[in-house]
Design a binder for these strands. Structure first.
Lengths: 205, 205
DNA sequence: TTGAATATTAAACAGTGTTCAATTACATTT
DNA sequence: AAATGTAATTGAACACTGTTTAATATTCAA
């Protein structure tokens, strides 16, 4: 049936329009200051319409957080060309931090904000597949490093978590304004310099 | 003048009542769901009164975040008895994580939420002295470790940031619900196990 | 053209942080 | 004891928020 196809396409188009408007406003003004009415205004529909396409505000921002993971995935594609696991691990850290520093609001939504995780807990199948996929890639890379003889005496799962935490920690302290404590001379490049210190540590493991 | 003394005492008492009510509600229902009206209700005053004691909601929660730092400071007192710098550094990590896991909402307010930092930027002297003091203690401890011959080839400031980031990263991923990605068998104790992996790394530096 | 189904809206609800003119309470002076 | 002046407190209003729902438009098939 061509007509119901077109209908579905139109539904999908409006969904995308909502998401597009939400994204623009989110990157412009942040999560709290992006209201349902703002989004509706921007696409010239009434506010109520959003609730026929999304359960609530959290679902809209969960969809946006998914877009963020797609973006990150694209950036991570180049890692396939890095044969050496330890080099791949380091490159992964660089890409992760680049992504976060170039898209701080997206990073915040993906790894700090509560909205997308709340949506997951509200929906039936409550696993965070976006984060799970990304973390799994890290885990596999570290497993490869261990096969190469690195990280002796360490356990895969907590070590992977530790390494993720290290880069996430730097980035999230920066994004959430906690780098005020850093000495003036070091403040500007603290995340990059911290990453380099981390590489120096990794070189010994 | 006894009377103006008493008046000032009463003003201070009401300030403390506001803060007390805010704290109870915050720990009970979280930041967003603790409203000015909720706080006013609890102390049986009208909502407007809060604005004669605090500039805005952010200032109330900045005051609360200060209480958190005092709490953390008390827990850190025991570190004075740890002579060996490297042992002191490790003990510091344990205490930091204990504090965070026992007071997740306070930790969130101190190191993740935007409210207290926004208040600092709104006020005239905009440095985060609470965080600065705590970070300085970490920096001094690491400096002592370096004097003992540890962390050769590393730079004090970025290294201190890296170490802080590592523990903050683990704790904040946990608090903000990102540990869903961890394998079921490891999930329950991932922060503690991650910390132990970290100690294993420190032992080589 | 009618009838059913779908899409969209407007209005209402119950809240939010914040401001401010009006009111109350109270110590000081007459 | 009454009047005055000051400081503390209130209540109502403003401009918002997310969300629900009954009513209205629109669209397509018979």
């Amino acid at each position: 049936m061509g007509i119901s196809d077109r209908k579905e396409r139109e539904k999908e188009e409006l969904r995308e329009k909502i998401l597009g408007a939400a994204k623009v406003l989110f990157l412009e003004k942040g999560f709290e200051k992006t209201s349902i009415r703002n989004i509706a205004d921007r696409i010239e529909y009434s506010p109520g319409i959003l609730y026929h396409y999304f359960r609530d505000k959290n679902e809209i921002f969960h969809a946006l957080h998914q877009e963020g993971f797609q973006q990150l995935l694209v950036m991570m594609k180049v890692l396939n060309s890095v044969r050496n696991p330890m080099e791949r691990l380091k490159a992964m850290g660089s890409i992760y931090i680049s992504f976060a520093m170039q898209n701080p609001d997206m990073y915040d939504l993906m790894f700090i904000k509560e909205a997308p995780i709340h949506h997951i807990h509200d929906s039936e199948h409550d696993d965070w597949k976006e984060g799970g996929g990304t973390f799994n890639y890290l885990r596999e890379t570290i497993k490869d490093c261990m096969s190469d003889g690195h990280f002796q005496g360490h356990q895969l799962e907590p070590l992977s978590f530790l390494i993720w935490s290290t880069v996430h920690g730097m980035v999230s302290l920066q994004i959430r304004g906690r780098c005020e404590v850093i000495k003036e001379e070091s403040k500007a490049n603290i995340v990059q310099d911290g990453l380099e210190e981390f590489y120096r540590v990794l070189d010994r493991l």
